[in-house]
Design a protein around this nucleic acid. Sequence first.
DNA 1: GAGCACTGC
Length: 666
Amino acid sequence: MAQDREGPPAKRFKAAAQPQGHTPPAHVQRRSLPIAAARGPLLARLRRLDSAVLIGETGSGKTTQLPQYLYEVGIGHPGLIAVTQPRRVAAVTLAARVAEEKRTELGKLVGYTVRFDDCTSAETRIRFLTDGMLLREAIGDPLLQKYSVVILDEAHERTIHTDVLFGVVKAAQRKRKERGLKPLKVIIMSATMDVDLFSQYFNGAPVIYLEGRQHPIEIFYTKERQSDYIQAALVSIFQIHQEAPACQDILVFLTGQEEIEAMTKTCRDISKHLPEGCPRMTVLPLYASLPHPQQLRAFKPTPEGCRKVILSTNIAETSITISGIKYVVDTGMVKAKKYSPDTGLEVLAVQQVSKAQAWQRTGRAGRQQSGICYRLYTEEDFEKFDEMTTPEIQRCNLASVVLHLLALKIPNVLTFDFMSKPSPDAIQAAIDQLDLLGAVTQKEGQLVLTPLGKKMAAFPLDPKFSKAILLSPKFHCAEEILTIVSLLSVDSVLHNPPAQRDEVQAVRKKFISSEGDHLTLLNVYRAFKNVNGHKGWCKENFINGRNMRLMAEVRAQLRDICVKLSVPLESSRSDTGNIRRCLAHSLFMNAAELQPDGTYSTVDSHQAVAIHPSSVLFQCRPSCVVFNGLLRTNRCYMRDLCLVDADWLYEAAPDYFRRKLRTARD
DNA sequence: GAGCACTGC
């Protein structure tokens, strides 16, 4: 920790631009929102347009007001107005807010639809829903005929679902026009100024700007490049702490749990030894895997004379809003996932944020009063940041996206009209994967779903897991596979507080299966069911009860789909061999073999891999395993392993392994 | 031999 002799970085900041952006307090009446002044002309314009791009700063009221305006003047009548959101909470709270403003009961005129929760009725005209939900609806109705207006909100976030929806609504709009059906109005709403892409994509749709109400934010850059952003952040925090009034809170953006926990400790230690007269300091970590009650602490106001310092991941960038933040300290770093289609490898790495992300972070300072943002990088470096974060669709395994597009009967997925095209390699890799799973086939020169593929598309799952479910009757273990797949599609039900590591290990022993992680999870679930999900039991056994209940909802949903598809549901009871066979048959492309030197090599691409330390097989050396996925951090790790017989793999996909052997020989 | 950002159906 090299202390800078010229003084801490904060002293060397220089002032720069003042951006805008903001949120009004909840009590602000509809009519005083900035958008209200523009209502007449806005509606006159929108009435004539097929598509429009609406840029509104936070606090312009666009999301709550526009759907009501459209409804009030009968634009899109008859038919529904859909407003999509990337997050569930947003869909629910916005619907509640708008229902209240319209003085109606939620679920009547105004409703919402999210997974596991549909609060709409025949009367509903304005429907808030998650983008994933609208996408799923599109499988049954690619022309989205229920809707006369679709508003895609938070478009700048570019979630994988929004990106696919762009193409789906554009196609639906065009087809409805061609067939002389009721027109579909598409409105893209975004918070950022990067609008050319949206406008161009929607055939040159006009861009309409809405004013917001943002308090000014003063931005400071470092004068010199910082070699250690953590050290720089520490110095900045205590610089602010010594100079600013105690009522002004600080939000610091860091990259991950470990870093945040370490820094929390350091800050707490330092704050104990501050000079007399310095305000007290409460340091609070904030990241997604932090148990909910602990997350809530970040929202509580601190007592007078005490400053709140929140050390957060990018969860505070979009998902969580904390009021009363005066200072933002932006390290300019983020931990993000990338995907390489050739190796099937996910890489989780710390990298620089984009300019858009930096602005988003900065904006967290000026929500209720003027704010100050310290950027722990130079202005020159900032200018070199990427303009936008790479859209998720260019960073992901596309297997489920391609399966979804085929279910929507898109004629050629390789030429699908994406706003930002994923690489052809990534699409081809997804097609190959679906081919291996038996989900696709060529018909008259076109890629189409097989009957199995159609069934797979019915599940909201990664295709290899849908395949596992659909294969399970053959192995008489559908109930068990449903459980395992459900457990794998929620956040971990195993709670691992680092401070109680030994205790956790001791108590977890009884669940561990030498056959791997999948069967260990199954044991946990069975034990959980045996005690009816008893809360005390969860606590004693370090089981996350909330994720367990969520898992049960997922399981029920998947089970319903099985029933609809007439998948026979049987239990294998104590026979675990069949369960592992079923997993081998659906995860065969993710297999690895023990090498003579004690390392592992993937069967698919002969990549050197290791067993992830979180796996129950970490200290074992099974000769052959299948795994859920690969993750590269410091090394390349297999996650969620299941012990299998090498013979089962060959039996699962003889053609594939024959091909592999041939390539290996060449 | 040692580790995991964030959403969503």
